[in-house]
Design a protein around this nucleic acid. Structure first.
Length: 124
RNA sequence: UAAGUAAAUUGCCUUAUCGAGCUAAAGCAUGUCUUUGGUUAGGAAAGUCCGAACACCGUAGUGCAAACAUAGUGGUUAACGGCCACCAGUUGUAAAACUAGGAAAAGUGCAACAGAAAGAAUGUACAGAUAAUGCUGUAGUGAAAUCAGGUAAACUCUAUGUGGUGCAAUGCCAUGUAUACCAAUGUUUGAGGGCUGCACGCUCGAUUGUUGGAGGGUAGGCAGCUAAAGUUUGCUGGUAACAGUAAAUGUAGAUAAAUGAUAAGGGUUUCGAAAUAUCGAAAUACAGAAUUCGGCUUAUAGAUUUACUUAAUUA
């Protein structure tokens, strides 16, 4: 799998997201919280992922954008390691709960532990 | 040289690796695939405060009232409450800056201190006049004392203007679900459903089965959506805002929302060390398009340019 994150791999559509939030399970590792759910897509993508930063926590649009980009970057670079053994299709929503300033490195760490937690839960 | 005033410009760069949106071409495996190329945020994109374009709704005529906005004079513009010029006033040594610059001879209200009294009340002293009296004058307070004045960032009056909602406008396509309605067809001689696939059997079964039309418009998609009162430069007219003209140029279009991340190096500024070269550390702002323009307002590290004022020094 390549380290891409194209339009097809993004979580879109009101229906899917509503479903995800109403029926999905969640795992939180500060400063992240990941909501996930098994689903079926028509396209041949293993996972669809969305990213969200709340306006209440981070007020300036520039900083919000920056954090979203970092989240996407962290996901893009590490998704190969996360989804090695997965065959079913998933939908993810990554929520950011923390402060305004954060580095890519920290986000990567948090994301890795969070996805490991999810894998454990699903396998057992 | 120092301090200041005004106007204008700019607002980090380079390389490597890994990516994202839009778009063009090519390829065959015809996939919303692969490869290659192009392109991708600001001076305020912000606040949403004015003015327009555009769209829909309302009124489809005219007048009045209310509410709101504006308020020297002239010009400019698609339009404006913006901008420019001039006059007046205020502040400043000055360059300049600011303006809450229509009306007090329509009415209502308000007014510190002083003063007897700031409006329906005539005090004290002196003088004059008279039958008598605030009947007359002077003194004293104050900006103002039967003479009326100030105040409209008080009501008010005058003149002028204003319908409402905003691209989540609006138009189009339309999966699924339920079905008012219409047509065809099937029918108590049993359509069709249920009992695990078939047969038999049992059972339910008429405002109903199937097919088609039509309506509605949810998920989603397409248009609107970027060539525009465009940008840059020169020339001409004008004190200027601005206008005219010629040439060049083609410059984001996302939608759970692209325009990025990481690493290295270099600028710039500040601080410390040093005679310099240089070395080390820190900082590198405000801020992210969402239909589009013209303004206003607010935020902003730093850098640059021009004009002018004041003070000092030198010639």
């Amino acid at each position: 799998m390549k380290q891409t994150y194209s339009k097809r791999e993004r979580l879109k559509g009101k229906k899917l997201i509503d479903e995800l939030f109403s029926q999905g399970k969640s795992v939180s590792v500060y400063p992240l919280r990941i909501v996930y759910k098994t689903t079926d897509f028509e396209t041949s993508v293993i996972a669809k992922t969305g990213v969200s930063v709340s306006k209440k926590k981070v007020k300036l649009a520039v900083k919000r954008n920056k954090i979203k980009r970092l989240l996407r970057e962290a996901y893009r670079l590490n998704k190969t390691t996360y989804f090695n053994n997965i065959t079913t299709q998933y939908a993810f929503m990554i929520l950011y709960l923390g402060k305004e300033n954060i580095s890519l490195h920290k986000i990567e760490q948090a994301m890795t532990t969070a996805f490991q937690k999810i894998l454990k839960k699903e396998m057992s």
